[in-house]
C-alpha cells in the first residue's frame, strides 16, 4: 500500500515538474513580457503567438549565455536562468502600453457555448485515442524476430577467457544449443538453452590451456529445431583479444 502511494506521489510530483518546466521553457517568459502589449486587448492569438515565440527565442539565447558559465547547461542553471528571465519580464508586462491607432480591430469575443466546448473536448479525446492507437500499433510491429549472439573478452581479472551472450528477440520462446570451438575443434557444448521472449543469458567460457597466438575460440549457436544449420557465429582471436572499454560487469 505504502509502495503504491509512493508511486502515486512520485508520478504526481513528476507530472507537476514536467508541467512547470514546459511552462517555463515554452510559455512564461513571453507571456509575462507581452502581458501589457497584447493581453489587454483581448487579442488571444497575438498573445499566444508572442508568448510562445518569445519564449522559444529567449530560451535559445539563455542557452548560449549559460554555455559561457562554468557549470554550463545543467538543470539547476536552467531553472535559475528561466526563473530570472520571468522575473525580468513580469515588470515589463505591467507597463501601461496604450493601444496603437492602426492595425486590425480586436477580435470579437470567441464564440463558445457548452455544446461547442464539448465537441472540442471530444475532438481532443479522439485525437489522443488516435495517438494511443498508433503507439500500440508501432509497439506490436512483429516483423523483427531475431537472436543476438555475442562474444567479448572477459573484462575483469576473472579466470574466464571470454563472455558469450545470447539474447532471444524472436517474439517467442526458443531452445538453443551452443557449441564452443577452439581452432575448429569442439571443446564445449551447451545443448538445451531455453529462453523466453526478451530473455538473455551470458556464460563465461575458458579457453583450453594449449591455445595461444593466432588461435581462435568460436561460439556457434543452433536452433534446437534446426541442429544442422549454424544460426549465429562469433569468435575471438586470442592473440589480438583485448578487453573492451566497458567496465567489468556482473554476469547474470
Amino acid at each position: 500500500m505504502s509502495g503504491a502511494l509512493h508511486d502515486v506521489i512520485l508520478a504526481v510530483v513528476g507530472g507537476a515538474q514536467a508541467a512547470v518546466a514546459t511552462a517555463l521553457v515554452l510559455v512564461l517568459p513571453g507571456l509575462l513580457l507581452f502581458a501589457g502589449v497584447a493581453g489587454r486587448r483581448g487579442q488571444r492569438l497575438e498573445w499566444i503567438v508572442s508568448s510562445l515565440a518569445t519564449s522559444l527565442a529567449v530560451t535559445v539565447l539563455a542557452g548560449l549565455v549559460l554555455n559561457r558559465l562554468p557549470d554550463g547547461l545543467v538543470p539547476s542553471a536552467w531553472w535559475t536562468a528561466l526563473c530570472t528571465l520571468c522575473g525580468l519580464a513580469a515588470p515589463v508586462g505591467l507597463l501601461p502600453f496604450r493601444e496603437a491607432r492602426t492595425g486590425p480591430p480586436p477580435a470579437p469575443a470567441a464564440p463558445g457555448s457548452r455544446a461547442r466546448l464539448a465537441v472540442v473536448a471530444l475532438s481532443i479525446a479522439i485525437a489522443a485515442g488516435a495517438i494511443w492507437l498508433a503507439r500500440s500499433g508501432a509497439e506490436a510491429h512483429r516483423e523483427y524476430a531475431y537472436t543476438n549472439l555475442w562474444i567479448v573478452p572477459e573484462p575483469g581479472p576473472g579466470t574466464a577467457t571470454a563472455l558469450v551472450g545470447i539474447e532471444n528477440k524472436e517474439q517467442a520462446e526458443q531452445v538453443y544449443a551452443l557449441e564452443i570451438m577452439a581452432n575448429g575443434a569442439l571443446v564445449g557444448l551447451v545443448p538445451d538453452i531455453r529462453l523466453g521472449p526478451g530473455e538473455r543469458v551470458v556464460r563465461p567460457i575458458v579457453a583450453p590451456r594449449q591455445l595461444a597466438g593466432e588461435d581462435m575460440i568460436e561460439a556457434r549457436l543452433f536452433l534446437a529445431e534446426r541442429p544442422d544449420l549454424v544460426y549465429r557465429r562469433v569468435w575471438l582471436r586470442l592473440a589480438a583479444a583485448r578487453p573492451s572499454d566497458v567496465a567489468a560487469r556482473t554476469v547474470p
Binding site: Q17, A21, L26, T59, G63, L73, P75, W78, W79
Partner: peptide, 27 residues
C-alpha cells in the same frame, strides 16, 4: 538548446520534449 532545457528540467525524453517544442513551433 531548447530540447536540452525542456528535457533536463522536466525529465521528459528527448522524443517527448522534442514533440512539445515542435507542436509549440507549429502554432
Amino acid at each position: 538548446i531548447l530540447t536540452a532545457a525542456l528535457g533536463e528540467m522536466s525529465g521528459l525524453s528527448i522524443h517527448a520534449a522534442g514533440l512539445l517544442i515542435l507542436g509549440a513551433a507549429r502554432v
